[in-house]
Lab assay of single mutants.
Amino acid sequence: MEVRTIKVFTTVDNINLHTQVVDMSMTYGQQFGPTYLDGADVTKIKPHNSHEGKTFYVLPNDDTLRVEAFEYYHTTDPSFLGRYMSALNHTKKWKYPQVNGLTSIKWADNNCYLATALLTLQQIELKFNPPALQDAYYRARAGEAANFCALILAYCNKTVGELGDVRETMSYLFQHANLDSCKRVLNVVCKTCGQQQTTLKGVEAVMYMGTLSYEQFKKGVQIPCTCGKQATKYLVQQESPFVMMSAPPAQYELKHGTFTCASEYTGNYQCGHYKHITSKETLYCIDGALLTKSSEYKGPITDVFYKENSYTTTIK
């Protein structure tokens, strides 16, 4: 009895394709271990004539594949690729409408935090270190965002349907971005203890939790000093293409032309909904596939993004 075979390709990165001759009487799992086709788990399936010449994702289970996976995804987590594939199996079914010149995501599976993050990423200057993220990001900007969303979920250790947080998501993504040249110098002034300067680099240099107003941050924000008295913390120097200011959701007025974009969060910790506000020729609110415009805006804002380049204080 002759062994019926077909020729397929296996890959971990969709760049390096490895030619395989597979036995049609055995499952993919018996031949390769966990195997995925377009995100779908085909591990328990036997090869079919229609699979001839198709590319299958496999887990990096030998040295060659491990090197290829690390170079593309910059992670050695053995569960990463499987999590990416199972997320992709959902995100490829989502709709990605162009809204006001940006790629958004039609609401499904509690994905409003991903839509808000995706919209924000198209408006701030950011370059990702893992080629996987950078490639998928370019495709997302062009309207094909399924891979990018699935990668975000995998890097953030999230599953489809789980509630997510924009600030946490951005923080994970910033860790995989090139923020080497970003720098922030802060000064804390206390009447009792004097003053202390701190220099922050990388992710810490672009994120701040405690106030939404970048102007206020430049002037000074009140913080408790270690001595128990009130101290003032203010920005001395900022070198970065953008800054992200966050605070627990509270009524906040966004003035046209003073910011790049913002995240609105309605609801409580267990259950809520994100919308995205962007400042173009007027203010726009993007909620999944829905767009509304207004000249002014007041609502429960939790993150505001500002364009920056270089700032030095005039406070002496």
Rank of each mutant, 00 (worst) to 15 (best):
E2T: 10
E2F: 09
R4D: 14
R4V: 13
T5G: 11
T5P: 11
K7G: 11
V8F: 02
F9N: 10
F9I: 08
T10S: 07
V12W: 09
D13T: 09
I15C: 05
H18N: 09
T19G: 11
V21T: 13
V21H: 13
V22P: 10
D23W: 08
M24Q: 11
S25H: 09
M26V: 09
M26K: 15
T27L: 12
T27W: 00
Y28L: 08
Y28H: 04
Q31E: 08
Q31L: 13
Q31D: 07
F32R: 12
T35F: 11
Y36D: 04
Y36R: 01
L37E: 10
D38L: 10
D38M: 11
G39V: 08
G39R: 03
D41I: 11
V42S: 08
T43D: 09
T43K: 08
I45P: 07
K46V: 13
K46W: 15
H48C: 10
H48T: 15
N49M: 09
S50G: 11
H51K: 02
H51T: 03
H51D: 14
E52Y: 11
G53S: 11
G53L: 11
K54Y: 13
Y57E: 05
Y57K: 07
V58H: 08
V58T: 09
N61E: 06
D62G: 10
V67E: 14
E68G: 02
E68I: 10
E68A: 08
H74V: 00
H74E: 09
T76Q: 15
P78H: 08
P78S: 13
S79P: 15
L81W: 09
R83Q: 09
Y84W: 05
Y84V: 06
Y84C: 07
S86C: 13
N89K: 12
K92Y: 11
K93L: 11
W94N: 04
W94L: 05
K95M: 09
Y96M: 05
Y96K: 06
P97C: 11
Q98H: 13
Q98T: 14
V99E: 11
N100S: 13
N100G: 15
G101T: 01
T103C: 09
T103D: 09
T103M: 04
S104Y: 09
I105E: 00
I105H: 02
K106W: 11
K106V: 15
K106Q: 14
K106F: 10
K106C: 08
W107T: 06
A108R: 07
A108Y: 05
D109M: 05
N110W: 01
N111K: 00
C112W: 00
C112T: 05
Y113E: 04
A115E: 06
T116K: 09
A117S: 07
A117E: 04
L118S: 07
L118G: 03
L119S: 02
T120R: 04
T120V: 09
Q122S: 02
Q122G: 03
I124F: 02
L126T: 06
K127M: 07
K127P: 09
F128W: 09
F128V: 03
N129P: 03
P131E: 14
L133S: 02
Q134M: 06
A140N: 04
R141M: 12
G143L: 01
G143N: 04
E144V: 05
A146Q: 08
A146L: 03
N147I: 08
F148I: 06
F148L: 13
C149P: 02
L151E: 05
L151P: 04
I152R: 00
I152V: 08
L153K: 04
A154W: 08
A154D: 05
Y155P: 01
C156R: 00
N157Q: 05
N157A: 01
T159I: 09
T159Q: 15
V160T: 05
V160I: 09
V160P: 07
G161L: 03
G164L: 00
D165I: 00
R167V: 03
E168Y: 06
M170E: 05
M170G: 04
Y172A: 11
L173P: 03
L173I: 13
F174N: 04
Q175V: 00
H176F: 13
H176A: 04
A177L: 04
A177I: 08
N178P: 03
L179N: 00
S181K: 14
C182R: 09
K183V: 11
R184S: 12
R184F: 00
L186S: 06
L186C: 10
N187K: 15
V188K: 07
V188L: 09
C190Y: 07
K191N: 13
K191F: 09
T192M: 07
T192E: 15
T192P: 09
Q195K: 14
Q196H: 14
T198Q: 14
T199R: 09
T199M: 11
L200C: 08
V203N: 04
V203M: 10
E204H: 09
E204R: 11
A205D: 02
A205H: 01
V206M: 00
M207F: 02
Y208E: 07
Y208K: 04
M209D: 05
M209C: 09
G210Y: 02
T211Y: 04
L212R: 02
L212G: 05
L212H: 08
Q216T: 09
F217A: 10
F217T: 04
F217I: 12
K218V: 03
K218L: 02
K219M: 09
C227A: 01
G228M: 06
G228W: 02
G228I: 02
G228D: 03
Q230P: 12
A231Y: 07
A231W: 02
T232A: 03
K233P: 00
K233F: 04
Y234T: 09
Y234M: 09
Y234D: 00
L235Q: 00
V236D: 10
Q238N: 01
Q238E: 03
E239N: 07
F242Q: 00
V243M: 00
V243S: 01
M244I: 06
M245Y: 09
A247K: 13
P248R: 09
Q251W: 12
Q251G: 06
L254E: 05
K255T: 08
G257D: 13
G257I: 03
T258I: 10
T258L: 06
T258Q: 13
F259P: 01
F259C: 00
T260C: 11
T260V: 15
C261F: 02
C261R: 01
A262M: 01
S263V: 15
S263Q: 05
E264F: 04
E264N: 00
T266L: 05
G267T: 15
N268R: 15
N268Q: 15
N268V: 15
Q270I: 08
Q270R: 10
C271I: 10
C271W: 06
Y274I: 02
Y274S: 07
Y274W: 04
K275G: 05
H276M: 12
I277F: 07
T278R: 04
T278Y: 13
S279R: 00
S279Q: 08
I286T: 15
A289H: 14
L290I: 13
L291E: 08
T292G: 06
T292N: 10
S294M: 15
E296H: 14
E296W: 09
K298G: 06
G299N: 06
D303Y: 00
V304L: 02
F305Q: 00
E308Q: 08
E308D: 01
T313A: 15
T314H: 15
K316C: 15
K316V: 15
